[in-house]
Structures are given as structure tokens and as C-alpha cells.
């Protein structure tokens, strides 16, 4: 089983009450014991989910497949200053900066917006959802002057600032693979930044997260994103100010005061 939603046989002596309680949470509750330990099937289910999450981190983004999926729609390919995945994981600072040789390939605008599809921490998410999201959002913004899609490898969110600056784009949308969990390894996050610049704080961005087939679906995410972009253009800002102006939408400014964690996917 790759999906951990369990379908196990109850012990013969008493009915498995857990079967019903599992409708309340995806947590791995009521796992039976082998002595004190987990039973074989649960140990292997866990390892399978962990393997999938690790593969999401380490499998390179298939850039050719993405370009093929775009067909005639123009795109550009860039990479960050992190030369490989091992460097990327250890040096978030390098993942935020564009490799100098890539800067020259970027066609200067002015553009209203540039969309960036970056691998982040889950290439599976980007591979699966970035192009459908780009195409769906584009359709909702017919009068916008949109730059070619930039496909970026070994990228973090702030790489979009560098890209937008080189392109002379007023706004940047970074679609990036989120840190994979055991239950969801293919979740895409979208970060919108108005008037981005290198060194732009995370509090100046808005984030839509949890985009995957079992979470926020692409069409709903596109509608939300297009609304945010239109508001950002009117208000000339993103971040806390835009969040406060938004109606009841599941979105958050990209910084929260919480336990230190790598929110910067």
C-alpha cells in the first residue's frame, strides 16, 4: 500500500473500533502491536511512504517533459547557484540566487508578471501541477502581458526575485514543490510577490499552499491566484496588506511566527 489509509483485518476476538475512528483523521491511529512494536505491514507502509517522500526530494525535475507539455507556449530554463541537490539542501542561500550565465538568457520586459516553475523540495509536485496551474491562471488573465514561463532547477522561493529583476517584471508567481510529508509528497505551493527585488522579505509575499489532487485542486488554485494577482495590481502590494484585504480564502502571508522551520521551500 502506498496510501496509508488502512484497510486491515480486525482481531478475531473484538471488532476493530479503530476502523470507524479512522474516518476522523489521517493519523496512523490504532496500529496493532507485535509485542511492543509495530506489525510488519505497518512498518513497511511507513517505509514506502518515506521512500516516496525522499524520491520527491531527490528526483530531478524533468525539464524536457515540461517543455514538451507546454507545446508552442514559450518557456525559458534557468538554474540557481546551487550546482546539485546536495549543495541545494545545505546552502539555501545559493538556491535563492540565479546562476550568472542564466541571467543573460532572460528576455527583458517590461512584463506584468512572470511565472516561475521551480523544483523546490518536491519535483513530483512541480512536474504534476505547475504547467496546468500556469495555463489555467493565464486563461483567467487575458489582458495581462505575461513573460515566457521560466522553469528553474535547484530553486527556492526567493529565486523568483532575481528572475523578475532580470526580466523587468512587475510581479512574480513562484510555483514550487513543498517539503514532502509522508501522506502527501506532491504538494505545490505558490508564492506571489508584487514589485519583487533581491532581498525582498517573506512578509511581502502571499502564499497558496497544499495544491495537489487530494488538497486544493488546480482549477480552484488558479481562481484564487488570479483574484490575488488582480488585487495586487490594484493595491500595488502583496503580503500582510493583501491578506488583510482578502475575503475568507485559505491563504496566508508566507511568514508566520512559529517554531523555526524551513517554511522557505
Amino acid at each position: 500500500m502506498t496510501d496509508h489509509t488502512p484497510t486491515r483485518t480486525p482481531a478475531a476476538s473484538h471488532p476493530d473500533v479503530w476502523q470507524e475512528l479512522r474516518h476522523l483523521t489521517r493519523a496512523r491511529i490504532g496500529l496493532p502491536r507485535a509485542g511492543n512494536a509495530l506489525r510488519t505491514s505497518d512498518v513497511l507502509d511507513f517505509q514506502a511512504a518515506h521512500a516516496k517522500a525522499r524520491d520527491a526530494v531527490h528526483t530531478p525535475l524533468d525539464v524536457n517533459a515540461m517543455q514538451a507539455a507546454l507545446g508552442p507556449v514559450p518557456s525559458l530554463v534557468v538554474h540557481s547557484q546551487a550546482a546539485d541537490r546536495a549543495t541545494y539542501l545545505r546552502r539555501p542561500d545559493l538556491g535563492r540566487r540565479l546562476a550568472p550565465e542564466c541571467a543573460q538568457t532572460l528576455q527583458q520586459g517590461p512584463w506584468d508578471v512572470v511565472f516561475v516553475a521551480a523544483d523546490g523540495l518536491s519535483s513530483f509536485a512541480t512536474q504534476q501541477s505547475a504547467i496546468p496551474l500556469f495555463m489555467a491562471t493565464k486563461q483567467l488573465l487575458p489582458d495581462w502581458h505575461i513573460a515566457p514561463l521560466v522553469i528553474a532547477t535547484q530553486g527556492r522561493v526567493a529565486l523568483g526575485d532575481d528572475i523578475a529583476t532580470c526580466l523587468k517584471a512587475n510581479m512574480v508567481v513562484v510555483m514550487i514543490g513543498e517539503r514532502p510529508g509522508l501522506s502527501v509528497a506532491d504538494s505545490l505551493g505558490v508564492y506571489l510577490t508584487y514589485a519583487p527585488y533581491v532581498g525582498c522579505p517573506d512578509s511581502a509575499r502571499n502564499c497558496i499552499s497544499n495544491i495537489h489532487p487530494h488538497g486544493l485542486v488546480v482549477l480552484a488554485a488558479a481562481a484564487k491566484l488570479a483574484w490575488l494577482m488582480q488585487q495586487a495590481r490594484t493595491l500595488k502590494l502583496t503580503g500582510i496588506g493583501l491578506k488583510d484585504a482578502a475575503p475568507d480564502m485559505a491563504l496566508s502571508p508566507s511568514t508566520q511566527i512559529s517554531l523555526p522551520k524551513d517554511h522557505d521551500a
Binding site: 493519523a27 496500529l31 509495530l38 509522508l182 501522506s183
Partner: peptide, 17 residues
């Protein structure tokens, strides 16, 4: 955490087992 899998914070800790 149940089964060592924190489904909210997306990381792994220890299981009750």
C-alpha cells in the same frame, strides 16, 4: 505521535509503539 507520522507538521517523530 501516532505511527511516528505527524500529519500536520509533516515530519517524523517517534511512534507510541
Amino acid at each position: 505521535v501516532p505511527g511516528a507520522d505527524d500529519i500536520m507538521l509533516n515530519y517524523q517523530s517517534l511512534s507510541f509503539h
